[in-house]
């Protein structure tokens, strides 16, 4: 097997790792933040909020991520230049890059899935614990912040760990919108060196390492509150 190309392409590979990591580092927390609102809307009393949240989740879970990515990149992306003043603003260098649209699509998609999972987790919190919170005089907002959400997140942690790993596995599609992530690096190396197997093998090692890091982080979070089995 021929790995002699590694020194020449190490910057490209490292940049690819960085971009993949960046995509995760932005889409996961932002997506999760949005997911909290989506979940609260669905377990709350307001029928309009519930309807909007349900519609959002149905759309983003019901369409392929690739289609969503292209809709955002080619659709939204082609309208942005026509917004007056945008091209001259400081935002333009960010907004014209494929990375922005890729991150946006990944965030919105992730939020939909986590919203539904968090909704299930919130419904799984034993009713008695919420009653105890009401019985001491907590307002609904306080119950949400202090009891309901922390408990729901704790219940959903194993599932969320898996979802972040799935998000990592979804990132290669950003290559289709000009983002040279880790997969994009492997593709370029193949184009240049005509080696198919070796670049993919190396890139696989990177993905597995990233997955391991993610699962370890979540394991630490799970261990923070001991659960007796």
């Amino acid at each position: 097997m021929d790995f002699t190309w590694i020194p020449e392409y190490q910057n490209l590979l490292l940049h690819g790792v960085f971009l993949t990591f960046l995509l995760l580092a932005i889409s996961v927390p932002l997506g999760f933040g949005l997911a909290i609102f989506l979940a609260i809307a669905q377990v709350g009393d307001n029928p309009i909020a519930r309807w909007i949240s349900k519609g959002y989740c149905t759309f983003f879970r019901g369409t392929p991520l690739l289609i969503q990515l292209w809709l955002i990149y080619y659709g939204l992306g082609s309208y942005l230049p026509y917004i007056p003043g945008l091209r001259a603003s400081f935002l333009w260098p960010v907004l014209r890059e494929g990375l922005f649209f890729a991150t946006l699509a990944l965030t919105l998609n992730f939020a939909a899935y986590q919203g539904e999972i968090l909704r299930g987790a919130m419904l799984a919190v034993p009713k008695g614990e919420l009653e105890a919170a009401r019985a001491v005089g907590m307002s609904p907002g306080m119950i949400l912040r202090r009891i309901w959400l922390p408990r729901a997140i704790r219940i959903g942690l194993p599932t969320f760990a898996g979802e972040v790993v799935l998000q990592l596995k979804a990132t290669p599609i950003v290559f289709s919108v000009t983002v040279m992530d880790l997969y994009g690096a492997a593709y370029k190396i193949r184009q240049d060196t005509l080696l198919v197997y070796e670049p993919l093998l190396l890139v696989t090692v990177f993905y597995v390492t990233l997955t391991f890091v993610i699962t370890q982080v979540f394991q630490k979070l799970e261990n923070a509150v001991p659960v007796r089995r």
Partner: peptide, 10 residues
């Protein structure tokens, strides 16, 4: 005080 205690486990 509840029959099933309802302490917050976290």
């Amino acid at each position: 005080v509840f029959q099933s205690f309802n302490l917050w486990p976290h």
